[in-house]
Design a protein around this nucleic acid. Structure first.
Lengths: 179, 179
DNA sequence: ACCCACATGTAAGGAGTTACATGATTAC
DNA sequence: GTAATCATGTAACTCCTTACATGTGGGT
């Protein structure tokens, strides 16, 4: 499995990045679809360098700061990524803690539950807003509209996010009405 | 975190169950929302028994088979479950491997990608059908329509599943059209 | 003959989270 | 003075997956 390495290659296929950049993009830009801590990113980068999937692209030194080690994807890395992308994917579960809690609604005073649902709704409204911003941003970058641009792929994924957040918000509304 | 124990308590709050039952319900009935292996279920049951959250309800012996050890939730267990349910829940990510692959669509020949998307679509159509069956089943069990019944809570969660699968299928369609 | 369902568990390992360490600068 | 950002990494720990162990009866 170990999809962390493919998440990293996914980003590196677009531009050279440092370990720090990768972490940031995963936790902010890309995401929150796929998160990673530094403990995963740095060792995995080193491992991939050893296997020839990425290589050092250059070093950047900004004044006092630690040296930024930029990595780029190699041809072998690109091939591995394409191979993985076109492989069948295992079934995946939703696994959302709040859904699990929703199973216990009947055990709990409705007022208390409603507070939590409202909270969740707000959270997903925030995410929806963030995704919509991203959609706009990406749409403007696109307009040449060739489906082979990386941006087109990003857009599709973010649009999934938009739909997902909308569904979540609607579901929260329905739940509140029921109680 | 360790939400596995609360997933187990969620099931035990409704009826006494054996470890095997819990595993089965998680991987089939309840799910696939929350999965667990026997290695998690049995030790966790023992731990919870030690903490007084569950207690042995009885033993069942069917002919040649190993003894079924049925557990029931205690008052302390029920309180812990209610406490957890009404606590705020952390933000959670989508984390679907196929979405990650979708970021790489631009790298791959469209025909190859379409094959995988069709596959995924089919998978989610199957799940949708299963969830719809469950909705029907639960709706029939309900009709007395008191929102304090466990079944009402189950229904809400399964309805989320239905909407989720629909959105996934639509998204697959849109992706295919784009390519 | 062979695999699956039932039913309990244990063992080993991989994946992921949280915290720590270092160290200079900028913002409040 | 305190915290946050940049930037690299390590350590410890929990969580989860996969495989194994045992044993009988039923289906193909």
């Amino acid at each position: 499995m170990s999809s962390i390495r493919y998440a990293m290659l996914t980003l590196l296929a677009r531009e050279p990045l440092s370990g720090y950049d990768i972490k940031q993009q995963m936790n902010n830009r890309m995401g929150p679809f796929w998160k990673a801590g530094s403990n995963q990113v740095y060792p995995e980068l080193a491992k991939m360098e050893g296997e020839g999937l990425v290589k050092l692209y250059g070093l950047e030194q900004h004044a006092y700061r630690p040296v930024r080690k930029l990595y780029e994807i190699t041809e072998a890395g690109r091939e591995a990524l394409i191979q993985w992308t076109t492989e069948p994917t295992e079934r995946e579960n939703i696994r959302d803690e709040f859904l699990l809690k929703a199973y216990n609604t009947w055990l709990v005073e409705p007022e208390k539950m409603i507070i939590r649902i409202e909270e969740k709704k707000k959270e997903h409204e925030e995410r929806l807003a963030a995704y919509l911003d991203k959609v706009e941003e990406l749409t403007q970058l696109l307009d040449s509209s060739n489906s082979k641009a990386p941006i087109a792929s990003s857009l599709s994924v973010v649009e999934f996010g938009v739909q997902y957040e909308r569904l979540y918000i609607e579901w929260c509304d329905k739940l509140i009405k029921k109680l």
